[in-house]
């Protein structure tokens, strides 16, 4: 099987199929995620790319049961265990222990009144009740050292406000790997950081993946971050995956006009830019989905037929693309 640039027989560690998330709002139901499917294999890195509001974070939050007030349907299996609809107490045992998640803003992600050592040990002791206080503390120092925080033993007693943004994100990563998870979901982990720190952070994540056989799901809006760090990419638009494939294939031969648009937006050193490229129009929102292909109002290649039916993922070149103009596969609905 070569679909989506992957050739292997082993079982995915995380298998997501037709996941749908609908928020109930005062203005009616808002379908934020509309049938997303993807697989994450042990030790590999998958990027989920899209603009804000495309549903990429919501997808991952839904899988971990961290959304309240939303209806979630479809399937997300971790090592065969269905997570959607799983008892909250069972889901809690998986969160942070088997599947961890880190977030965008390291400035607000840590509790301001607890020392980082305390916060680290709390996460460990939540999943390892037998771990002694001193054992947890020793492990916390070890973890801080592992994420390249200097003077780890001293930093253990620091409070979040005494650390820089990059250091706080390192602490977050230390927390996320403290129970040796198999999957790490990183939701825009570098967006709030300085460019130089961004590179260090991606390097750290790559190191951890290699050393711990950690599967990484990297949520980002920045294709530039994705290139060196991941194996496969799912591009999301308006709550759906519009293109899915290996990093090489997708960068070399992007299919979906939206993916091409995103790639054109990347600043390049070899071309002189007068104006930074951008995709015209505004992103579709769950409350105002255009008929047919949700990208068609912004698409340079749109045909009249594009607004009739919503395209489905079908092979095109080396990737799967949801564009009926390219694939010739008629849409649904």
């Amino acid at each position: 099987m070569t679909v989506a640039g992957r050739q292997r027989n082993d079982e995915p560690i995380l298998h997501v199929e037709d996941l749908r998330v609908t928020f109930r709002t005062a203005a009616g139901p808002a379908p934020a995620v509309r049938g997303v499917s993807f697989d994450v294999y042990p030790g590999e890195a998958l990027a989920i790319v899209g603009e804000s509001g495309s549903g990429k974070s919501v997808t991952m939050l839904a899988i971990l049961g961290l959304l309240s007030g939303a209806s979630v349907t479809g399937s997300a299996r971790f090592r065969g265990t269905e997570l959607i609809g799983l008892e909250p107490s069972r889901l809690r045992e998986i969160r942070g222990a088997n599947v961890s998640m880190i977030f965008q803003d390291p400035m607000t992600s840590l509790n301001p009144v607890l020392s980082i050592g305390r916060q680290l040990t709390m996460v460990m002791r939540a999943h390892q009740p037998d771990l002694s206080r001193s054992g947890a503390r020793a492990r916390a120092v070890e973890l801080l050292d592992r994420v390249a925080i200097s003077q780890a033993a001293r930093r253990c007693d620091s409070y979040p406000h005494e650390l820089s943004g990059g250091m706080r994100q390192r602490v977050m990563i230390a927390m996320a790997i403290s129970n040796d998870p198999e999957v790490l979901i990183a939701d825009e982990p570098t967006t709030a950081l300085d460019v130089t720190v961004q590179a260090q952070m991606m390097e750290l994540l790559a190191d951890l993946r290699r050393d711990h056989q950690l599967a990484l799901v990297l949520i980002t809006h920045d294709l530039g971050v994705v290139a060196g760090a991941t194996d496969r990419i799912a591009v999301m638009y308006a709550g759906k995956v519009v293109e899915y494939g290996s990093v090489e294939a997708l960068f070399a031969d992007p299919g979906h006009p939206y993916t091409r648009g995103l790639l054109e937006c990347l600043p390049r050193l070899d071309i002189r830019h007068e104006v930074q490229a951008s995709i015209a129009g505004v992103p579709a929102t769950p409350m105002s989905l255009p008929p047919g292909c949700p990208f068609s109002p912004r698409c340079k290649y749109a045909q009249p037929s594009c607004s009739e039916a919503e395209p489905v993922l079908a092979p095109h070149g080396q990737t799967l693309v949801a564009c009926s103009v390219l694939t010739g596969v008629a849409g649904s609905r």
Binding site: L64, L66, R92, E93, I94, R95, G96, A97, S100, M101, I102, F103, D105, T108, S109, L110, N111, P112, M122, V123, A126, H127, M172, M175, A176, N179
Partner: peptide
Amino acid sequence: MEYIKVARAMGLRERT
């Protein structure tokens, strides 16, 4: 607050 979301994501018990 964000840190509460993080604490949930880390699998802490609701009581904690």
